[in-house]
């Protein structure tokens, strides 16, 4: 999955060296491992699936089995330099609460989302009249873990509502990336498949 790697590399580029990082929904630890090697961070992961926690532990990473919706209370205020939520917010039960938790726990946070406003998704819904199934969002409406999908615009609006500052945005579409200080231009909601936000309280 070359596209996935680009996503991880971009996130890595936003993380400062030798800092404390929490990766929520860390999966098998791919990102944490890369951060540990390239950025010398002290990493910690939170992951729902036991098997993946084991994979993290087996590769020498620290990971805790837990649920992003329930267990973020584990972490005290500002206990990490950076909290990462990569392609996970759309699968959580309470995205709004989680967003506020992220910037409570971290001095900054990095959130990446699949953009439901991408033109191919819009077109697919318009033409077929069915919930879009794409490479990135490969589930049917009834079995998808992605219960809270949003567009880039939705995300920006939610941050505004919560008084969260978007410091940087990186947008991605078919392996092309573009970086913005602050929010991206209005066309990105149509033309990018994915966005990575660097946010602060």
């Amino acid at each position: 999955m070359s596209n996935k790697r680009i996503d991880l590399e971009l996130i890595t580029s936003l993380v400062d060296r030798e800092t404390r990082v929490l990766d929520i929904g860390c999966g098998n630890g791919e990102l944490l491992d890369s951060l540990k090697r390239k950025r010398k961070v002290i990493g910690q992961g939170l992951e729902l699936k036991q098997e993946r926690v084991n994979q993290c532990v087996a590769r020498g990473l620290s990971a805790i089995q837990g649920d992003a919706d329930k267990d973020l209370g584990l972490y005290p205020n500002q206990s990490f330099d950076c909290v990462i939520l990569s392609q996970t917010i759309q699968a959580t039960g309470q995205p709004k609460l989680i967003l506020t938790e992220l910037i409570r726990i971290g001095k900054k946070a990095i959130v990446s989302i699949p953009n439901f406003g991408y033109w191919k998704i819009r077109l697919s819904l318009a033409i077929n009249g069915k919930m879009p199934v794409t490479k990135k969002l490969a589930h049917n409406w009834h079995d998808t873990p992605n219960i809270h999908l949003c567009t880039i615009l939705d995300f920006i609006n939610l941050c505004k509502e919560l008084n969260i500052k978007i410091e940087k945005t990186i947008i991605l579409s078919s392996n092309k990336t573009k970086s913005y200080n602050g929010i991206p231009n209005k066309f990105s909601n149509l033309f990018s498949e994915e966005a990575i936000f660097l946010i602060k309280s």
């Binding site: 404390r20 910690q44 993290c56 532990v57 620290s62 837990g66 972490y75 206990s79």
Partner: peptide, 9 residues
């Protein structure tokens, strides 16, 4: 976790 200790669970 609160004490910044390296912990897996």
């Amino acid at each position: 976790s609160a004490g910044g200790v390296d912990v897996s669970f």
